[in-house]
Amino acid sequence: MTNAITRRRRLELVVGAVVLAILAVLPLPIRDVYTQNLIILTILYAGLAQAWNILGGYCGQISLGHGLYFGIGAYVSTMLFVDAGISPLLGMFAAGAIASLVALLVGWPCFRLSGHYYAIATVVVGEIGHLLFLNWDFVGAATGLYVPFHGQSWMNLQFRTSKLPFHYLALVFAAATWIVAWVLEGSRWGYSWRAMRDDVIAARSLAVRVFPSKMAASAISGFFTGLGGAIFAQYVGYIDPDSVMAANISILIALPAVLGGVGTLWGPLIGAAILIPTSELTRSYLGGAGGVDLMIYGALIVGVALLRPAGLVSLLGARR
């Protein structure tokens, strides 16, 4: 039995390496800026959804407030860069650390709640953050912050002539979240999370320490979400509370994991590969018709949720 699991996990690593290799060469022949942008966003969201998946999928805590950690990550690295001149390459780890800390602060009271009460509490916490940032002059309030151009370099994480560096940055980020999820899946925490997700009382009777393991999932998930926020801020060069912290960001982070398959290694990746291009392409081609893009997007969510409740990953026949 153990042998079978070990073999499957090794196979996943091999498949993961192949996917990584494909994604590494994918942008080389593409000259079209629009397509390059689409691929970068898709990879970035695959990483963010994987970060969400650690708490929402493996641990089963449906957080609809991850926009808060994303936004805090974006703000921390941007403000360190703008006000203190600290390279975003370092700043993004500070961003992840602070987002992780905030995730612990949010988890501490919210993990007392269960089911829908937890989900709605996370929406509310996220919205409080959004409203406070909208009114907080120190962080630019509703006007937001521009990331000034300090010259093209990896130190400044700013590139004007090519999108390729951002492609690889997003890819390293997404690969890191994937590896972390892979390691966690086979770890003691990973087993604890799945046990308490399925039956919290039974898990507790087997000496699973429920609260500390939820906090661990929250901290790891928050760290990578904040890291992603920092990368996003450097990529777009401008942030405001509506674009990095609003409730729809939380949904955008959770949705690929849910539709791809929660608590699976490949779900977030597959979900992002379907959702982000659908959303972007319908918006570009049907945006003028006002609303049709949202209708297609909404119908896609309803359809996948009803027809493939285990996520699109179940189409591959993979063990969930």
């Binding site: 006002g290 609303g291 049709v292 997007y297 309803v302 409740p309």
Partner: peptide
């Protein structure tokens, strides 16, 4: 739905919300 029911319910109504909002905009 047999599997993953809680999340399916959340996201079915959520997808419906997006759909209705788009239809209203149209």
């Amino acid at each position: 739905v047999q599997f993953n029911r809680g999340m399916v319910q959340i996201f079915v109504t959520f997808g419906l919300a997006i759909f209705i909002r788009g239809a209203a905009q149209l």
